[in-house]
Design a protein around this nucleic acid. Sequence first.
DNA 1: CTGAAAGCGCTTACAG
DNA 2: CTGAAAGCGCTTACAG
Lengths: 334, 334
Amino acid sequence: MKSLSIKDIAVKANVSITTVSFIINGKAKEKSISEAVIEKVEKIIAESGYKPNQIARSLRTGNSNIIGLIIEDISNSFFSRIARLIEDKAYKRGYKIIYSSTENSVDKAKELINMFKSRKVDAYIISPIKGIEEDIQMLMNDGNPVILFDRNLPDISTSYVGADHFNASYQSIKNFIDQGKKNIALVTIDINVAQITERLEGYKKALEDSGIEYNEDLVLKIHFNQEENETIAQIQKLLQHKAVDAVLFATNYLAISGLKALKQIDKKIGDDFAVIAYDDHEAFELHTPRISAIQQPLEEIAETIIKMILNQLSSKAKLPAEEVIIPARLVLRD
Amino acid sequence: MKSLSIKDIAVKANVSITTVSFIINGKAKEKSISEAVIEKVEKIIAESGYKPNQIARSLRTGNSNIIGLIIEDISNSFFSRIARLIEDKAYKRGYKIIYSSTENSVDKAKELINMFKSRKVDAYIISPIKGIEEDIQMLMNDGNPVILFDRNLPDISTSYVGADHFNASYQSIKNFIDQGKKNIALVTIDINVAQITERLEGYKKALEDSGIEYNEDLVLKIHFNQEENETIAQIQKLLQHKAVDAVLFATNYLAISGLKALKQIDKKIGDDFAVIAYDDHEAFELHTPRISAIQQPLEEIAETIIKMILNQLSSKAKLPAEEVIIPARLVLRD
DNA sequence: CTGAAAGCGCTTACAG
DNA sequence: CTGAAAGCGCTTACAG
């Protein structure tokens, strides 16, 4: 079944499509269409249930009112929660979101960028990976608003919104030290991206500032894509071997593996052994004992991203890149 | 900066845009374009990085290669995991996903359907709510493929994919009974949708088949939108008052509230008190003791949805509605 | 106060 | 073997 076009409405109302278009786009007053005509046309539109074809509109105007969201994995709760907030805020401003997951693949990420490009999305929100700098630069050269989040790419100058990973990590370690911990371990992953390396830097700096020597044996770098069982085994080895009295897990899934590891070797969290997880998780509140965690301010991150996008969208001139670093919050439990 | 159009390529190659179009769309052979021309054009396309404008293509052909996904809330892990799987499978077949969350609002759901309609999405995947039957019926009348999942709408005849909630619930209660439980409670929500009421029906039937009388006092219907604290308090009241020796939680977030409730009143899960949660959650594996759960086969659900969509998309004729009910799995822990 | 016409970037039936 | 032209459904500069 064919849907109605602006022409059908024009014929029914006995006016030109120009007039209908003006009315649909709220330019009736400005174009001084008579009240009578406006009413007649609006009535017909309402009765017929006519909806303008956005595809045609996009082709003509050059914008789609769609924002492309490129993330690592929508099923990761950090991203799905951000996606939800972004969707919500964008929706209120008349924008829709089209998303895709990169699965940490450079090829897929490049493909997605091309795909979004050919779909003429109005703006890009990207949680990037190394290796797509050139593609992003091209996007910006073409005048597209681009906001990176979660992870930054140091080699290009892009607008960026993210949490202050360095400080959050620093504060967590400081907290351990203030509790009198001496052998503080870090369990992290072996990928070389800023949001992860900053957590290591914060760890190192906090130790240094307290006069504790950095001990490489206390830092476990888990291989990014390995089986969870392997991860659990490595964590157990770390915790059994040493007089470790505190651990910072650099991601929430590492913390979850870590908690499983502890359970298996029956090592208890308590006065003589403390744990903090980077990025909160529902399981932490429920765990016995409850697990302390660093919370990224998702709401604020999403709001900042959307604000920057809208700013760039509404200014004809190209805005300079802007970096917003938002403090993360250490939530101590039990 | 303007991006290249098919015309630019045609001019550069010194051929007509018709020829370029045929080559782009793999119809060169069929239209018997000479090898020399094909090579020349392909070279120019590759060098220039030209990507066809999908908007123009959509306007012309009437399809967008976009599938609209309408769900309750992308940040709910059940939906985000399904979304991930659907995205993946759709992507491999050349389709993109555009999603939006309804937040259980009828108005928003209707708005989303209209929005997707005006964007000319090729197909709809919807986790519906009551009150949008008419809108969905119209979609189908217009010849759009529509697949409902998770929840069905009994009043219209639509293709549907979902887990066998009745049986999963039935098996869980049977399992309690086989363990010798006598006072089995059900904590559910008060919304009147099939996927929830079926869980209650399964509960009732299992009791009946075992000759246990149904006791209304053991069924707690939580108000859908209330504060979690209120929920926790109600669960505590249920569990303190009665000789309850087993509980089935009808959703995973109810189970999480329930576990918090138990923790506060220090009621232990063990030989004399058993718990099962509907829909698994990472926290359950980690909990002490580990919590048994019903797992919906997400992979299978996603795969079935995509298969049905592609079937409908590739058949010119309207296919009859098809319902696929997939067994859920009870995972017993500890 | 209103309309005829060009054009956005494609695809495709038709013609040669 | 290849191209001119119509048309998808809009918006908007221009004209009256």
